[in-house]
Design a protein around this nucleic acid. Structure first.
Length: 418
RNA sequence: CGGGGCGUCGUAUAUCGGUAGUACGCUUGCUUUGGGAGCAAGAUGGCCCAGUUCGAUUCUGGGCGCCCCGACCA
């Protein structure tokens, strides 16, 4: 799209009350807008990034046979009372409201109860299992303290998947399959190398749960990374018995700060028992369904990418995540030939299916180039009197600043292979 | 929820019990044009409610909001 028509603008300075790098850069570049503490809106550029991340996650969940649903935000207290998770004493993150006609209602902060109740309508036989269902849905959590920009908010979209299996073995198989999908998500999101499957406390039904932790100075968690095995152990569970389980030694571990970008865990029969989700085995015997739960917050993932990959000039988006593939910078200063050349290139890119942000604003070179660095689109293509004379465009990688000069066909060829 | 800090043009910052200034941004004009240009003219501000005072943006109290540390974080 034409940058002159983009209704957001960049800013030189971040608001003084934003301390986290992710929020500072995302606000300065016009990706997000803060509504109140812990509540952010996504603006055109930000929504493009968020949707790209959602697209990646959706594809990977579908690839492991996840079935997408969309559950309601409004939650029925009766359901939650059955699992003892309605009272504010047991759960302190509830947002609650009332119906005009009387009666309480809650805003969902997770959906085990809901999905289990839905599954109950359809699952009765061993033939109905296994399956996994997931959604992208806005969660509400009344955090006592929102913090770190978009990393910990009171309203956020979460991809939450729930698996339903007939046996512990079957559950384990599903669990591992989904875990591998998670690895692919982080790799495609550009933070695969920094992200480790991390052993964390498991709760009542399995010894461990797994977090996906991205090593980053801004992280709130402390993990111990075993580079050889590409895994990590959360500080919370760092004990000799855990090290023995994993076959690793204490001195092989390196302490790092990390951001939790995903969490998967086994639920056992905690919810199926409480809500009577059972199936009949081949022999006719009723058994409780074994469940698992798998979460990723695309917003937090977006923040983590910014925290992890940004440099002192601004954001650096990985290719699959970026709001546009190309940032076309027109430095025409009123030169009609340069302007026409930029317009032509923009059209050609569009025809090739490559989305570009075309900076056609009447602004000086410094402002445009600095904005381009801040916005962080992977490839910057400059069109100017110089490039017009040379017959080649100046193509610069945002990530490493490397520049190459390409003709239009060379550029299209490069983009089709990248 | 405990502790601490902060609310001044759109943004970032000064000052001050008596005229609220600067920078960037914005408007208009001229010049300039490859890493946030120059000149000139202009518009825009004291979170809310009380109290003290001749006079409050400033002092006091309350409210609301925001940030940080901790606790919490299936």
């Amino acid at each position: 799209m034409r940058q002159s028509q983009l209704f957001t603008k960049t800013r030189r300075e971040a608001p003084k009350d934003e301390v986290s790098k992710n929020a500072q850069l995302l606000i300065r570049a016009g990706y997000i807008h803060k509504e109140m503490a812990g509540v952010y809106s996504y603006l055109p550029l930000g929504l493009r990034v968020l949707n790209n991340l959602i697209g990646i996650i959706r594809k990977e969940m579908n690839a492991v046979d996840g079935q997408e649903v969309l559950m309601s935000s409004l939650q029925d207290p009766e359901l939650w009372k059955q699992t003892d998770r309605w009272s504010d004493k047991n759960v302190d993150v509830w947002f609650k409201s009332e119906f005009k006609a009387g009666g309480e209602v809650g805003f969902g902060w997770t959906h085990e109860e809901d999905i289990t109740s839905i599954a109950n309508k359809f699952v009765s036989s061993y033939r109905d299992l296994p399956f996994s269902a997931y959604q992208f849905q806005t969660k509400f959590r009344n955090e006592t303290r929102a913090k770190s920009g978009i990393m910990r908010t009171r309203e956020f979209i979460m991809k939450d998947m729930y698996s339903f299996a007939r046996s512990a073995d079957e559950h384990e198989e599903l669990y591992e399959k989904i875990a591998s999908a998670y690895d692919r998500v982080y790799a495609r999101a550009g933070i695969g190398e920094q992200t480790y499957r991390t052993f964390a406390s498991g709760g009542a039904f399995s010894k461990y749960s797994h977090e996906y932790q991205t090593v980053c100075e801004a992280g709130e968690d402390v993990v111990y990374v075993h580079e050889g095995k590409r895994l990590a152990v959360n500080k919370e569970v760092l004990e000799d018995s855990v090290l023995a389980d994993l076959g690793i030694k204490r001195d092989e571990l390196v302490e790092k700060k990390a951001i939790e970008v995903g969490n998967i865990f086994s639920l056992g029969t905690r919810f199926s028992d409480a809500l009577s989700l059972k199936f009949k085995e081949e022999g006719g015997e009723a058994k409780s369904v074994i469940m698992g739960c798998y979460g990723i917050g695309p917003g937090r993932l977006m923040g983590t990418i910014v925290e992890t990959l940004a440099d002192d000039k601004g954001i650096v988006w990985p290719a699959e995540v970026a709001p546009f593939r190309v940032h076309l910078i027109e430095l025409s200063n009123g030169n009609e030939d340069v302007h026409r050349e930029a317009e032509e290139l923009y059209r050609e890119l569009g025809q090739a299916g490559i989305e570009a942000l075309w900076d056609d604003r009447d602004a000086r070179a410094g402002e445009k180039l600095n904005d381009s660095d801040l916005i962080g689109i992977p490839l910057r293509v400059v069109v100017s009197e110089k490039t017009l004379a040379a017959g080649k465009f100046e193509c610069t990688q945002r990530q490493d600043g490397k520049t190459e000069h390409r003709s239009i066909s060379e550029l299209l060829d490069y983009l089709s292979h990248a």
